[in-house]
Structures are given as C-alpha cells and as structure tokens.
Design a protein around this nucleic acid. Structure first.
Length: 213
DNA sequence: TGCATGATGTTCT
DNA sequence: GAACATCATGCAC
C-alpha cells in the first residue's frame, strides 16, 4: 500500500502478521513500537527483546497442559494481548499468534521507551535511567501501565488502547538468537530473539531454582 | 560486580 | 501445597 508523503505516520501492524507461528513472528517484532494509551497518557516502547512460546509442544508454555481459564486468550484469534500475573507481584504481556485453537504467543521481554518517558519513569522509579524503564518483562508492563484489565485486548485495532506499529523502514538491525531466559522447562530451545548491541536487552540468565524453606 | 534470597498472589496438581 | 516466563535488595569479595 502507499501513503502520501508527509509526517511519519507509522503503520499499525495488521492481524495477518500474527497469523503465523510465534517463532516466525517473534524476530519480526523486534524494532516495532508497542504503545499503550491510558488515561494518564501514551507510553511507547520499541521492542528489543522477545521470546516465542508454542502451545502443547512447548513445555515452557502456559498452554502446555491445555486450555485453562487463565491462558484462554492464547488459544483465541491472533493479534490480542495475553496478560498474566506472576510471582505474586508482576505482570507480563504476550502477543497471541496463530488462529483460534492454537496456543502460540510471543512474550515481550524488553524494550526502549521512546514515548512518554516521564510517565513511564513515574510509574517505575524516579531517576531511573531510560534504558532501565522497560528492561525486563515485568518492568516493561509496568512502564506501559499494563495490568490485568488489558488481558485479551486487541492489538490490531486502531481504536484500542494497545497498538503495535511497524518499525521505520531502512533500519537494518542484527537479530541475536539464543535460549530463553528464566524458564524452568526446555531451557535450551533457541526461541529468544533480541536486537544485538541494545543496552535495553537483559543479560542472559538461566532459570534460578529457588530454595524451599 | 555478582550471587543468593525474600516478597507476594494466582494457578494448577 | 508447590511452583512460577520476576525484581530489588543486601552482603561478600
């Protein structure tokens, strides 16, 4: 498609983009700008690190044991946000891939805040450097102000609070591939994708088993 | 600079 | 009742 020359109006990513396996969608999400417009204002994050999760063939996925009330969104149509609560205090956000009945999703792990920096910082910690605001999946949702109420929100709709914009053309970035971070199961599957050389990308950490008391 | 640990709630077995 | 796709903090070196 074409658009008239003028100010940069980034294109909203369409639903067909997500109607593909997560491990295919994931690397293409890098560089996209994910925005949440709330009552407080807009915050946008340029994605620098993501992870792919498949359904029943991926033991690290929430959908591994089949459909439940919590992961129902993952089994739904593509282009929606799956938000879940974990570790008693953190939210993480996924973008659902593939069609109805297939649990495929991409976890957004980290990004660089490119819009609404002040708001993002206020939600995080005053004085925090910009590159720390969305470094890590839980911080990313915090910076964007994403909570449980956005579970199942449409990412492809122009009217919704969540939107995903295609990266500006011309930027060729090197994509780094590696094992997923922090997962207890299938730690060696290379489905973690990151932009090389980005300071917002968290260092690789293997899942740390917790001592029980 | 790097590791170990506690906080905290939802979900599933 | 245990595990968990995490983060911030404290302490050792």
């Amino acid at each position: 498609m074409s658009r008239p020359a003028g100010p940069l109006v980034p294109e909203v990513v369409g639903r067909s983009f997500f109607d593909r396996p997560a491990e295919v969608v994931a690397p293409e999400l890098l560089g996209c700008v994910f925005t949440h417009v709330s009552a407080e204002g807009p915050v946008g994050v340029r994605l620098t690190e993501v992870e792919a999760y498949e359904g029943e063939r991926d033991p690290a996925s929430h959908a591994f044991r089949g459909r439940t009330a919590r992961n129902a969104v993952m089994f739904g149509p593509p282009g929606y946000a799956y938000v879940y609560f974990t570790y008693g205090m953190h939210f993480c956000v996924n973008l659902v891939c593939l069609g109805e009945g297939t649990a495929s999703a991409v976890l957004l792990r980290a990004g660089e805040v490119v819009e609404g920096v002040d708001l993002a910082r206020a939600r995080s910690r005053p004085g925090a450097p910009v590159r720390d605001l969305a470094r890590g999946p839980a911080r990313l949702t915090k910076a964007l102000g994403i909570g449980r109420d956005l579970n199942g929100a449409d990412v492809c709709g122009v009217a919704g609070p969540l939107r995903l914009y295609a990266p500006e053309p011309g930027g060729s970035a090197t994509v780094e591939v590696g094992p997923r971070t922090g997962v207890a199961a299938a730690p060696d599957v290379p489905w973690r994708f990151a932009l090389a050389g980005e300071p917002t990308v968290s260092p690789y950490r293997r899942h740390a088993p917790r001592n029980r008391r």
